[in-house]
Simulated scan of single mutants.
Amino acid sequence: MAELWKSLPSWVRNIVVPIIVLILAWNVIWFLVGAIASLVGFLIKVAVLVGVAAAVVILVKKAAKS
């Protein structure tokens, strides 16, 4: 690997490779942000669904008593 790195022209080592690394890092970061955001959104939807279901159960029990 060191031989390959040394065989590259200096402009490739100093300009092209860092740009490619930055682009890859940017894509990985935004992939992680998107995955975390979608997980949080899913958890919020589940919490709302559970809350609505609990409210319905409570209201049905109250209606059955009266």
Rank of each mutant, 00 (worst) to 15 (best):
I36Q: 07
W5H: 08
A37Q: 15
W26K: 03
F42A: 12
N27M: 13
S38M: 11
L43N: 12
W5F: 14
N27D: 03
S7P: 05
V21H: 00
P9Q: 15
A35Y: 08
L32V: 08
P9G: 15
L32T: 04
G41F: 05
L24M: 10
L39G: 10
I20Y: 01
S38W: 11
S38G: 12
F42R: 14
F31P: 00
V40W: 09
A2R: 12
I36E: 04
P18M: 04
V28H: 01
S7H: 09
A37I: 11
G34V: 02
P9S: 15
I29V: 14
V12H: 08
A2D: 14
F42M: 10
A25H: 00
V28R: 02
K6Y: 07
V12T: 10
W11N: 13
I15L: 06
V17S: 08
N27W: 06
L43T: 05
I15F: 02
I23Y: 01
K45F: 11
L32I: 12
S38Y: 11
E3S: 13
W26I: 09
W5E: 12
I23W: 00
S38I: 07
S10V: 09
I29S: 02
A37T: 15
V28N: 01
V28C: 04
I23G: 00
N27K: 08
I20L: 09
A37N: 15
A37W: 13
R13C: 02
S38D: 14
L24N: 06
W11P: 04
A35K: 11
I20N: 00
P9A: 15
I44R: 15
W26D: 06
I15V: 11
K45V: 10
L4V: 06
G34Y: 05
W30T: 06
V17F: 14
G34T: 10
A37S: 15
I15K: 06
F42N: 14
V12K: 10
V17R: 06
A2E: 15
V40N: 07
L8N: 06
E3I: 07
I23A: 13
K6R: 13
R13F: 04
F31L: 08
V16G: 01
L24R: 01
I20R: 00
G41Y: 05
I19C: 03
I15T: 07
W30Y: 10
F42T: 11
L4P: 00
E3C: 05
W5Y: 15
I20M: 04
I15M: 04
A2G: 12
F31I: 03
F42G: 15
L39F: 09
L8W: 11
A35H: 09
E3A: 12
L8S: 06
E3H: 08
L39I: 06
F31N: 05
G41I: 02
V12Y: 13
